[in-house]
């Protein structure tokens, strides 16, 4: 169809473009398949539930004990906790930018938010470890201040810009008539925003949150430097833990290809990717439901 009525040269150019676009996008699937293949022995030997819910990680033992429950729990604590901190601030900032900020201040804030996303995670992790963790150690007289909470706190700062940018966009999409209508009713701007604009923008704002959750789950350096890196099952937010990305980053270099340890880390990778993808698909389904519900 595309080829109909085109000259030969153009046909060649467009087929090159189509092939390159297709092949490079298929890389995503290639990645997934490759990681699945590398981790296959784990799934067939230990099984999905044994791997996910096993609570002991001693891949070098004979026979190896390979279960990642405590890392999954750590990941959830760290990422969930980050959202708990980031959501009120991120939404507050988005509402501020969309509705309340004086123009010149907004003009400064937007690039600032952009720059915050430009600071790499290792710097956040470093500052968190060098400043925040030290502060906890001194203040609460701890032997070591690293904890899932410390990681959450820094992750929160890292994901706030995403929450702000996406929620502000959602708020701006709300048709101006609603604002005019509200102003005409004489209600306060705060009331108008919370009761009318936010509900209308909730789809986009919720999406922003989920996107941030996905990022927080996959973030490596900050949690590696802050969460404490112990393999025990964390009992609370203030315990230490080792989220999945940190586990991969710490151990990958020391594995022998072909060993169970090596395969297990690929299984960890697969779990992590699937968690991120599941979150993103879950949100799409949920949003569609919300949309249909009105």
């Amino acid at each position: 169809m595309i080829y109909r009525g085109l000259g030969l040269k153009e046909k060649i150019i467009s087929s090159i473009i189509i092939s390159v676009a297709t092949v490079s996008s298929l890389l995503l699937l290639a990645m997934l398949i490759f990681i699945l293949r590398e981790s296959w022995p784990i799934w067939s030997q230990i099984g999905v539930s044994g791997f996910l819910f096993g609570s002991s990680w001693r891949p070098l033992n004979t026979p190896p004990e390979i279960g990642i429950l405590s890392m999954i729990v750590s990941t959830m604590w760290v990422a969930g906790g980050a959202l708990l901190i980031a959501a009120p601030l991120g939404f507050g900032c988005a509402i501020f930018l969309a509705e309340f900020a004086p123009r010149p201040l907004a003009a400064i804030l937007r690039p600032v938010i952009n720059m915050l996303t430009g600071i790499p995670s290792v710097v956040y992790g470093f500052l968190g470890a060098a400043v925040l963790v030290k502060f906890f150690e001194v203040k609460f007289d701890l032997a070591s201040g690293e904890s899932l909470f410390a990681a959450s706190l820094i992750l929160a700062i890292m994901v706030i810009p995403f929450i702000v940018a996406n929620s502000e966009a959602a708020l701006r999409l709300v048709a101006p008539e609603y604002r005019h209508a509200g102003i005409a009713l004489g209600v306060s701007r705060q009331y108008l925003t919370l009761r009318i604009l936010v509900p209308l923008a909730r789809k986009g704002m919720f999406g922003a949150l989920v996107l941030a959750f996905g990022r927080a789950m996959g973030e490596t350096m900050a949690v590696l430097m802050l969460a404490g890196n112990t393999l025990r099952l964390p009992g609370s937010w203030f315990d230490k833990g080792e989220p999945l990305p940190a586990l991969i980053a710490l151990e990958l270099g020391s594995t022998t290809p072909g060993s169970s340890h090596h395969q297990a880390l690929f299984a960890v990778g697969l779990v992590l990717v699937l968690m991120v993808i599941a979150v993103n698909i879950g949100i799409n389904l949920l949003l569609n439901r919300l949309q249909k519900g009105g």
Binding site: I35, I248, L265
Partner: peptide, 16 residues
Amino acid sequence: SMAGIPSIITGLFVYA
């Protein structure tokens, strides 16, 4: 979806 893949996963893939 690729944009959402954690960078450590990319590292893992290229490592293998």
